[in-house]
Simulated assay, not measured.
Amino acid sequence: MAVEERDPVSGRPTTGHEWNGIKELDTPVPRGVLMFIIVTHVWALLWWILMPTWPMVTTYTKGILGIDQRQSVEQDLTAAQAERAAWMKAIETESFEQIQSNEDLMRVVRSTGRQLFGDNCAACHGADGKGRANYPDLTDDDWLWGGEVEQIAETMRLGINSRHQNTRVAQMPAFGRDAILDRTQVANVATFVQSLSNPSVTTPENGPQVQAGREIFLTTCAACHGEDGKGNREVGAPNLTDQYWVYGGDLQTLINTIHGGRQGHMPTWDERLTPAEIKILALYVNSLAAAKP
Rank of each mutant, 00 (worst) to 15 (best):
Glu5His: 12
Pro13Gln: 10
His17Pro: 07
Asn20Ser: 15
Asp26Trp: 03
Met35Phe: 15
Met35Lys: 12
Val42Tyr: 09
Val42Arg: 07
Trp43Ile: 15
Trp43Phe: 15
Trp43Ala: 15
Trp47Met: 13
Trp48His: 13
Ile49Gln: 11
Pro55Val: 09
Val57Ile: 14
Thr59Glu: 13
Tyr60Gln: 12
Asp76Asn: 11
Arg84Gly: 07
Met88Cys: 10
Phe96Lys: 01
Glu97His: 10
Gln98Asn: 08
Asn102Val: 09
Leu105Cys: 03
Arg114Glu: 02
Asp119Pro: 00
His125Lys: 02
His125Ser: 01
Ala127Met: 13
Asp137His: 03
Asp140Ile: 11
Asp140Lys: 07
Asp142Pro: 05
Gly146Arg: 03
Glu150Leu: 05
Ala153Arg: 03
Thr155His: 03
His164Glu: 04
Asn166Cys: 09
Thr167Trp: 00
Gln171Trp: 07
Thr184Glu: 14
Leu196Phe: 05
Ser200His: 11
Ser200Gly: 10
Ser200Trp: 14
Lys230Glu: 12
Asn232Met: 03
Thr241Glu: 05
Gln243Cys: 06
Trp245Phe: 12
Trp245Gln: 05
Val246Cys: 08
Val246Met: 05
Thr253Arg: 04
Thr253Cys: 02
Asn256Pro: 09
Ile258Ala: 00
His259Glu: 13
Gly264Ser: 09
Thr274Pro: 03
Ala276Val: 12
Ile278Tyr: 00
Asn286Ala: 06
Asn286His: 09
Asn286Arg: 12
Pro293Thr: 06
